[in-house]
Amino acid sequence: MTETSLYVLQQLINGLTIGSTYALIAIGYTMVYGIIGMINFAHGEVYMIGTYTAFITIIGLLTMGVGSLPIVMLLALMTAIIISSTYGYAIERVAYRPLRGGPRLIPLITAIGMSIFLQNYIRLAQGSRDLAMPALVSGGIQFGDPAVFEVSISWMQLIIWVVTLISMTALALFISRSRLGRACRACAQDLKMTNLLGIDTNRIIALTFVIGAALAAVAGVLLGLYYGTINPYIGFMAGLKAFTAAVLGGIGSIPGAMLGGLILGVTEALTAAFFPSEYKDVVAFSLLVLILLFRPTGLLGKPEVEKV
């Protein structure tokens, strides 16, 4: 392979890694929007809480002398999922459910309020400085002629792909095969009708918040370990990127969120590859504007049918 194609391959690998974590976070935005038509701006903060939970768990396990990598990773994932899901559920109960049925702008404002509250609450509890995640996984595989260009895939990148793939498959199976999944789809089609048919829609809505939070927590653990540092403000940018991914793929559509995340990640990596890397956000958001100009519903979104 030529030097350029190897280089592009390397950047694709980097882009897919970031993109798959965007997709994980984007699911939370898209599922909530699909059912109740609101944008949960506190979702980025749930992701951030996931990384902090993972950080505390990992440090705790390491000081207790538990050094086995699979155990540490699994426990970190589990505690992060449990704590983040609890937050997701609590946010819905406290900030959104009491306002259901009101004007659409009001939950949007409480979402922003919730986001600011959570960010500052973690800042007060954990300090505003960057915390360094212990490097649990290091090294990787290299291929390609070193004299031309050596492509490297770190183990952490592989872990991110595998865990993302498992989570996404599990989600897809849950939505398409299980009774609760069917209820979710029914709610997304028509919330009122589903309620009339005897399904507790409040429970289903709470469930989507919990699922979204759990996937964001998975992304939090993975990205925390991949990047190496966390601070209370990481939720904002991650949330913005994931929201962009959700809109890009068609908000409300789960496959759309997955596709949107991957496209966004790869676009960023390829931009940084051939232009100064400070332009990667500019290009990513310009892409969003372009796609919305030509396909206002996003790549896989369905046009909203006028309900009479």
């Binding site: 030097e3 940084a272 590859a273 400070e278």
Partner: peptide, 20 residues
């Protein structure tokens, strides 16, 4: 000669470019 975004966390693209 290039800039990075303060607060950014992912430098994998930049590092690939440095290697290249």
């Amino acid at each position: 000669f290039e800039g990075v975004t303060p607060g950014d966390k992912d430098f994998s693209a930049l590092i690939a470019k440095l290697k290249r």
